[in-house]
Amino acid sequence: MLILFLCALLSIVTTVGIVLILLTEAVPFFNEVSILKFLSGKEWAPLFSIKSFGVLPLLSATAFIAGMALLVAFPIGLLTAIYLSEYAPGPVRATVKPTLEVLAGIPTVVYGFFAITFISPVIIRPLFQTESIFNAISAATAMGVMLIPMVVSLSDDAMRAVPSNLREGAHALGANRFQVSVRVVVPAALSGIVAAGLLALARAVGETMIVTIAAGGIPNLSYNPFDAMQTMTAFIMEVAMGDTPRGTVEYESIFAVGLMLFVSTLVINLLAQALLAKFREVYE
């Protein structure tokens, strides 16, 4: 019994551990680099001899790529979910759902490879006459494909939780399937659907390998999707790959960036959970 309790307690210990470690390593970093400069600086060059630690390029690249990925995944995922939940005949549903689950189970390093061997050279480069293989839009597209199953599965859950007597009520008033889906089911499931989008966004913000492989890895405060960029996660990878000795400011900088990453995903996740709680309150 006590052992079981300790098992459950471990989750709290993990959280505390994450927060403590990020803080203890980030505090010495912020002793050397002022928080204000960190948050407002427009240049990120921690590995040069004249270092500068302005996190804005990493932050903007993270938001930009995650946003573009969501732009791919959310509409496609939502439409798929509506189709599967409201239209698709049983056998179609029974085939498509496991197929999309396969997509969800593919490691992200494979998506990264797909981005630089297919999306970028076969689609993006001929279409937009870009020069480099490594650019934000290829990474974002691959990430969008990766997020589709997540959006589908979560919004499908939300729509199927809408009681079927609401659908019946609308049909009895002379609504066709489209009107039932768009005017009754989607609004009734809205908080669940928005939560699905937020959870996908958090996942995109924290996604590491796709951007490390495909986005170019150059800190760049730009909003041109064809530029190379470096996200927060890709920076952590870059430092981790080179043997940066412990105790240096470069080493500490990955914890400062990690802290920022942790806080941003936490905020998005908490928002999503609040929405889901509200959704469940209505239907359970």
């Binding site: 470690i21 390593e25 924290g206 952590i236």
Partner: peptide, 18 residues
Amino acid sequence: NNLAGVPSVVYGLLGLAF
């Protein structure tokens, strides 16, 4: 629930330091 949403690379930082 929150732990399930923490990016995996952050677990990596925990593993590295701890």
